[in-house]
Design a protein around this nucleic acid. Sequence first.
DNA 1: CGCGCGATTGAGTAATTTCAAATCTAGTGG
DNA 2: CCACTAGATTTGAAATTACTCAATCGCGCG
Lengths: 193, 193
Amino acid sequence: MEKNANLKTHLEELIQLSETEFKYISSHFHLKTLKKNQSLIQVDDSVEHTYFVKKGLLKAVYTDENGKEHILQFAMENWWITDYQSYFTKTKAILAVICLENVELLALSYNDREKLCREFHSLDFFFRKKANSGYLALQKRMLMFLVYDTKSRYELLLSQYPSLYQRVSKSIIAAYLGVSRETLSRLDKKKVL
Amino acid sequence: MEKNANLKTHLEELIQLSETEFKYISSHFHLKTLKKNQSLIQVDDSVEHTYFVKKGLLKAVYTDENGKEHILQFAMENWWITDYQSYFTKTKAILAVICLENVELLALSYNDREKLCREFHSLDFFFRKKANSGYLALQKRMLMFLVYDTKSRYELLLSQYPSLYQRVSKSIIAAYLGVSRETLSRLDKKKVL
DNA sequence: CGCGCGATTGAGTAATTTCAAATCTAGTGG
DNA sequence: CCACTAGATTTGAAATTACTCAATCGCGCG
């Protein structure tokens, strides 16, 4: 079993790489481990890296002026996470990225990412496809907000990611769904009927 | 003034192309003109093309089981629009794309897009960057939904796209903001206070 | 003048929020 | 095994917000 086996598998879902190429590419990633509740990115940080999740679960949160948290994204195994706004545009982070479990990440800097994309046309392709599917996923979420009521959104979320229910508290799910934890709690009751 | 001048300018915001290269690339686009209220894409269509907007304004709408319309995206000059879900995954369209004004579009087929991306590394780069900024824009909208109330979302929308207020009816803005047109109307009153 | 469409207003209802209090649960130390 | 605590979850009640449905208004156009 290879060192960055899950990264390799992840890339090979979309592109083909020789052993040498993969070795070279993966040499630009560095391992980062954090414990539950530690923060990977804090508000106002300069965000140099994007992170491939080998293991664990994280959230990207925006904290509003009343101190209320809103979750923009979860990331579990084989997903990517960062404050993309900050990463792409070299502005200060407005999101925080926090570990919901102990995590193992592979960090890739912006400059290395762009360098690798220049060197390997296939990587440019890979990240284009990834960006497209990220866009579709977000659009799907947006549509869920526009079309469905809270209860349906909750059920759709759990049916799509059953493991979330085990891995995070309900307050966190509420912060993702955009409702108060009290309302979410009351929905749980209704569901049984 | 060149034929596809605005497309050229649009590409040159991110990449450099020789005159010959641009000629070749733009030969894969074909012009499509539609009148106000005509539909570019209908539900259940197979979506072969993505469209660059030369002129005019369109909406991408999802119609729910009660017949209520929800607007996922507007597209004005120099934006791209299609049902991306359908375009990328070769499934039937779940969105309709309708002209809110007379429009002039440049259509690019999926196969030509992929072909051009293979032939020109810079185009792969271009569409990767476009996908990234599209993702950021959608993320911003998602965040607005999570964080702000209806009134703030309305004001933020108008401050970002002042021309929308002139170009579309309030019912349509309501369908984008995710509120009923009555509620939006009552907000207009409050704003004056 | 009158039609038609979008926008507004009113009234009643439904959903969600807030704040506070009560309950449950898992982990810790005696 | 029990008591205790901190955090998460649930519940209650009042206040807010938005929705629906129906009626009305305003205005451009034939």
